Simulated assay, not measured.
Amino acid sequence: MRHVDPAGTGRAGAQAQPDDHPLPTPGTLPDTSVTDPAVNHHVNPRTDDLAVNPGTDPAVNPGANPGMNPERSSGTNSGVGRAVNPALNPAVDPDMNEVVGRDDLLLVTLDTLRYDVAAELAAQGRLPNLARHLPGGVWERRHAPGSFTYASHQAMFAGFLPTPATPGPHPRLFAARFAGSESTAAGTWVFDTPDLVGGLAKAGYHTACIGGVGFFNRRGALGSVLPGLFAESHWEPGFGVTSPTSFEEQVRRAEQVVAALPAGRRLFLFVNVSALHQPNWFHLPGATKEAGDSRETHAAALEYVDRHIGRLFAAASARRRCFAVVCSDHGTAYGDDGFTGHRIGHEAVWTVPYAHFFLDHGEPTT
C-alpha cells in the first residue's frame, strides 16, 4: 500500500504503520483508501497493482503479453461468443490481444460532447490537434451506451464503448468473458474481472484516473464509485465544470502521473474532460453568464480542449507507443425540440463522436 505524501504530490512513500488506521467499529469495514484532502488524490490499496505476478508484468518480464488469452491466440474463440469479422484491418480494427501488454493505453471521455458540433468543427478546420489523429480527419458517428455520465461510464468500464451507428453486430475492443456474446471477436481483448480497469490491472497495468465532472470528485459515496475502480485517482475543484482552465489543470496532472511512473511499467490513463459540460459559456469571448450556455459556447469549449490536447497526447506517448480512445459519453440538448440537458432519449444526446488511433512514441505536443 502506498502513502500520499503531505505535500500532495502523490509520490510513493513509506509503508503505513498498523496504527495509521483506527480499528473499525464492529460490524463495519475499515476504510482502506488513502486520501490527501488538499488535492483529493486517492491510492486504492485494493486495486493498487504495484504487486503483480512477475511472470505477466511487462516491467519484470518484457517478453510477457498478459493480454493474450490462450484460447483466443489459438483462434478457437472458445467460451467468449461468436467471432465477428475475423479478418482485421490493423488501422481500423487493431488486434487488442497484441496491443494490451505492449502499448500504454489512454481513454479520454469528452464529457457531454455532441456529435454534430464535433463533426462541424473538424470539417471547418477548427480542431487541428484532434483532427490530425482522427482516421480520415473525421469523427466516427456512434451511439452512446448511456444518456448521462454515470450510466455511460459504468458501461464503458465494462467494455461497452459507444457503438457504431450502423447495423451490427460490431466487434468490441474490450469485453468481459461472457458466454453468447455476439460482439466478442478475434481481435477483442477478453478480461475475467467485473470491469476493464480491474482486468488491465490484473494484466500488469498501473491504472490512473483524472476526474472532471462530479461523478469523479469523491465528495460522497456516489462520486467515489467510478474513481474507486482505479489504483490512483485525482480530482480537485480546478478540474471541475466551473473552472475556465479545467483541461489545462487536468493535463498538468496527467503529465505528473506519467513522469512519476517507472519507465518499464505499462499505464492505463483515463481522463474525464469536464470543459464541455454546462456551464461552458465562459469559453466563448463576449458570452455572459446571464445569456447562459448555447451550442456556440459548447463549440468554443471544444476548441479550448483542442488547444491543449496535444500535451496530453505527448504525455501519454512519452514512454512508448500508446493506443488512444477519444469519445464522448453522451451529448446534450440546447433547446432541440424543446429539450435542454441530457439524461433523455434524444438524438442530440445518444449520438456521439468517437475515434481510436495509435500515438507514436515521442508524439509532438502540437
Rank of each mutant, 00 (worst) to 15 (best):
residue 3 H to S: 15
residue 9 T to W: 04
residue 11 R to Q: 15
residue 21 H to S: 14
residue 37 P to R: 07
residue 40 N to V: 12
residue 47 T to F: 14
residue 53 N to A: 13
residue 55 G to V: 11
residue 57 D to C: 15
residue 62 P to R: 06
residue 63 G to M: 03
residue 63 G to P: 03
residue 68 M to P: 02
residue 68 M to N: 13
residue 80 V to N: 08
residue 83 A to G: 13
residue 86 P to N: 05
residue 86 P to Q: 09
residue 87 A to C: 04
residue 91 A to K: 07
residue 92 V to E: 15
residue 93 D to I: 09
residue 96 M to T: 12
residue 104 D to H: 07
residue 113 L to S: 05
residue 132 R to F: 00
residue 132 R to N: 01
residue 141 R to P: 06
residue 142 R to S: 14
residue 145 P to L: 02
residue 155 A to T: 07
residue 166 T to R: 14
residue 167 P to T: 07
residue 171 P to H: 04
residue 176 A to C: 15
residue 183 S to Y: 03
residue 183 S to K: 11
residue 186 A to K: 06
residue 194 P to K: 12
residue 213 V to G: 01
residue 217 N to A: 08
residue 218 R to H: 13
residue 220 G to F: 08
residue 221 A to K: 14
residue 221 A to C: 10
residue 222 L to W: 13
residue 223 G to T: 11
residue 224 S to D: 13
residue 224 S to I: 06
residue 224 S to L: 06
residue 231 A to L: 01
residue 236 E to W: 10
residue 237 P to D: 12
residue 245 T to M: 08
residue 249 E to L: 15
residue 250 Q to C: 04
residue 271 V to S: 08
residue 276 L to F: 03
residue 279 P to S: 11
residue 282 F to E: 04
residue 287 A to P: 02
residue 288 T to Y: 08
residue 295 R to M: 10
residue 295 R to Q: 05
residue 297 T to Q: 03
residue 302 L to Q: 00
residue 302 L to V: 00
residue 306 D to P: 05
residue 309 I to Y: 02
residue 317 S to M: 07
residue 333 A to D: 07
residue 334 Y to W: 12
residue 334 Y to V: 01
residue 335 G to P: 05
residue 336 D to S: 13
residue 337 D to N: 11
residue 351 T to D: 12
residue 352 V to S: 06
residue 359 L to G: 08
residue 360 D to M: 09
residue 361 H to W: 07
